[in-house]
Design a binder for these strands. Structure first.
Length: 284
DNA sequence: CTCAGCTCCTGCGGGC
DNA sequence: TGCCCGCAGGAGCTGA
């Protein structure tokens, strides 16, 4: 599911319920997601108060009042729902059925319930000492937030210098810029009319100065739209993001390029194991 | 160091 | 209808 705009949408949806809330009950319905839960996961969370719910790159960070932070990554198919955890209509059965793939349930003293679903289980959660977050291996090497001033053309030029890989691959590298994924990289390169395949080191500074604002623009627009709903992404309140209707390249194979004045057609090619959607006419 | 390829896991849609 | 294949929003690992 989630790239930066989707994770930010989830954060914004959960914050009203979780920020300032004290957890009265936490349930892990299996021993692991991508990784095992820490041994004291339930014990450490039960009774803890969530001070803030923040986002860094594609991670959600729930800072607890106990010196640790609950770190959550949604992988490919992770999703939160306010409520949930039981199959709707389960009361029709003699025994309530657990909703499929509802792996973690958080209940607050205020009576709210937040359920984490993740069919593919590429997501993960851990408890990390808050003061050690920045040096933790998940965060130590992360690049700048793409929407921050720290992410600019100079930074990108430095990262691209001498590299033969395409800008597509490098923009997916979270050490260069943190939060982009396959959709928004395809979209930003199409908007900036830069080929995903050319050697990143050969892209002139002027073109990077066009690319950076396009990255920021597509992310900002996607956040405003509540993210993109491809298969199963929904906001925490169940509302669907609608940015997918504004895709110009991603998932638009054989459709006309939307760039003004371009008469090209979007192609799909596999690059580094991922689908790359691009316009061979205007993206150079 | 760089880079391509493979891996984890489940579900879904298209083609036959 | 049912089966098989390819593909999916991430990212870490391997080995050349």
């Amino acid at each position: 599911m989630p790239e930066l705009p989707e994770v930010e949408t989830v954060r914004a949806g959960l914050a009203p319920v979780l920020e300032g809330a004290r957890l009265s009950r936490v349930e892990a319905r299996r021993p692991d997601l991508r990784f095992p839960f820490p041994p004291d996961f339930i014990q450490a969370l039960t009774g803890a108060r969530i001070e803030t719910l923040q986002r860094r790159a594609k991670y959600l960070l729930a800072r607890l009042d106990r010196g640790r932070t609950l770190v959550m990554h949604l992988g490919m198919s992770g999703r939160f729902e306010i409520g949930g955890g039981r199959t709707p209509g389960a009361f029709h059965h003699a025994v309530a059925t657990e909703a499929p793939h509802a792996h973690v349930v958080f209940e607050t003293e205020a009576g709210d319930r937040v359920t984490y679903f993740d069919p593919r289980r590429f997501g993960y959660m851990d408890l990390i000492p808050t003061e050690a977050l920045e040096t933790h291996r998940w965060f130590a090497d992360l690049g700048p937030e793409p929407l921050s001033d720290a992410f600019d053309a100079n930074r990108l030029a430095q990262a691209f210098a001498g590299r033969k890989q395409g800008p597509k691959t490098l923009l997916l590298d979270q050490r260069i810029v943190a939060g982009l994924g396959n959709i928004y990289v395809c979209e930003a390169l199409n908007r900036a009319r830069i080929s995903p395949f050319r050697a990143a080191g050969s892209i002139g500074k002027g073109r990077l100065e066009r690319l950076v604002p396009e990255i920021k623009a597509v992310l900002t627009e996607a956040i405003a739209a509540g993210g993109s709903t491809l298969r199963d992404f929904a906001q925490a309140d169940g509302a669907l993001g609608y940015f997918q209707h504004r895709f110009r390249a991603y998932d638009r194979e054989a459709e006309p390029c939307a760039n003004p004045g371009c008469r090209g057609v979007i192609l799909r090619k596999v690059q580094a194991g991922r689908s790359t959607f691009y316009c061979p006419v205007c993206q150079r």
